[in-house]
Design a protein around this nucleic acid. Structure first.
Lengths: 258, 258
DNA sequence: GCAAAAGTGTTCTCCTTACACCCATGT
DNA sequence: ACATGGGTGTAAGGAGAACACTTTTGC
């Protein structure tokens, strides 16, 4: 166990990347779908391939901050949820140099994501229809997708795709899009209400061509209580940022099978 | 997003540490308890404080390999389970220098751990009765403990503390020690058998002063099937090593409350 | 036979699921 | 009125918890 840190030539390079999720209608089917913004690599290695937003870790910047920063640089948005995913460090994952990437995953609000910046070098892709990406980024995204879909079933994070207030139908649409299966509205309502993670505002939405739905808001006090031993981190620009992944007490996953 | 990795002076140092768990009788109560081996720091900073085994990451070594190596150097054992826990990189976690630590957690067999090496600079501690440790290592262990206790409830990993064959009473004892609560033997049996993760060998253990219990073995084919998108990594010396944390299909958590 | 742990059977309760049905609004 | 989704009622099925009871060994 050497006490002196290794020099530049004999050390791995440390990078931070982020898998960013937003919910938008699918281009052809129109159904709500998970989208991910990627950036085009402008240099070698892997020039012109699409890749996760990220960069080298500055010595004086926190890991989460670096993730939140690259997220902002890519989407122009602040994340509503940001959590460390995994650290990838295989010897051969980047040709020529040993790179260790601390990868985060994030959720941004769907409404905002609609007007997210898109340019020659930044493009949004449907999460399940990705082209071959740079490095091991396909594998990383597969894992992030799995984590999102798993976590949504046991933790109250779905609201991170929505605004401050929302109808239960909107919340249910998030679950259906993420889990890719229909959910029974009746059971969903009961499960969510029983979980206590959600509070009725008393207001309703008018203008629909049917019975006006009630508006709900997430109970922030509950969110704080379920973080486990390591509390949520805070990042300058961001809102709610999760520390080491910790289970929440109750989250709806009700409804029909398949 | 700079393309060139930063040099030594403006880069964080990359370290790998491991939280190692074994099950041994508590020194006073005699009950099965979680133990953790720690090493005494022989240099500054934090000289003479106890710390997690670990070291700087060599450029040419895989992250898991580095974790498995430090584990072997500390306990003299090969891990039966090894999984990445989290990456800690707070600016102020190590005085004087920016250190980013990729932390793994491991389980070693209890029987072997009995005769694990202990010396002036390596000592085993009861996991819930730790002194103040170096750096943020108390916090890291708290998180590792939480992860172990959470994961044991939904993934079939408890057998990693045991040998190739075991009785259901031994397996139950593992659960009781980790979860710190009594479990009903009758319900435990049914839940485990229904999970399909365990197979009877047909043999029994003689010599007890009661009815001879049957011996079981874990079904390895099931273990492989539940890894999710990223399969288990393999490490030269180790046995079963888990890739990015993925849920298992079924694991017992039956029995009495509290 | 007795103690002790292995192993089986049975009931109760709670949570999830399925689905019938009523409610409130726009057209 | 009627279409549409919001919202309520209710019953069936399954998993977990509690606990009585039977089996098989050592002493």
């Amino acid at each position: 166990m050497p006490e002196r840190a290794p020099g530049a030539t004999d050390a791995a390079a440390l990078a931070v990347s982020t898998v960013i999720f937003a919910l938008r209608p699918h281009e052809t089917t129109g159904r709500m779908t998970l989208w991910i913004p990627l950036v085009r690599r402008t240099r070698n290695p892997q020039k012109d391939l699409w890749a996760l937003p990220g960069g080298w870790l500055p010595v004086d910047e926190e890991l989460v901050s670096a993730a939140a920063r690259t997220l902002g640089e890519t989407t122009g948005l602040a994340p509503t949820y940001l959590e460390q995913l995994y650290t990838f460090g295989e010897l051969e994952r980047s040709p020529g140099r040993r790179v260790v990437s601390v990868v985060y995953w994030a959720m941004v609000q769907s409404a905002e994501a609609e007007r997210a910046s898109e340019s020659e070098n930044v493009r949004w892709f449907v999460a399940d229809e990705l082209p071959p990406l740079a490095f091991d980024h396909n594998r990383i995204i597969d894992y992030a997708l799995w984590r999102l879909r798993t976590k949504v079933e046991y933790a109250a994070i779905a609201h991170a795709f929505l605004g401050a207030t929302f109808t239960l139908a909107e919340l249910r649409e998030v679950y259906e899009a993420v889990l890719q299966r229909p959910i029974d509205p009746a059971n969903f309502r009961r499960t969510v209400e029983a979980s206590g993670t959600v509070v009725a505002t008393g207001e309703v939405v008018a203008g629909t061509r049917h019975r006006p739905p009630r508006l709900y808001r997430y109970d922030a006090s509950i969110d704080l209580a379920d973080r486990g031993p390591l509390g949520p981190e805070s990042v300058p620009g961001g809102q709610s940022v999760a520390g080491p992944s910790v289970s929440a007490p109750s989250v709806p996953s009700t409804g029909e099978q398949r």
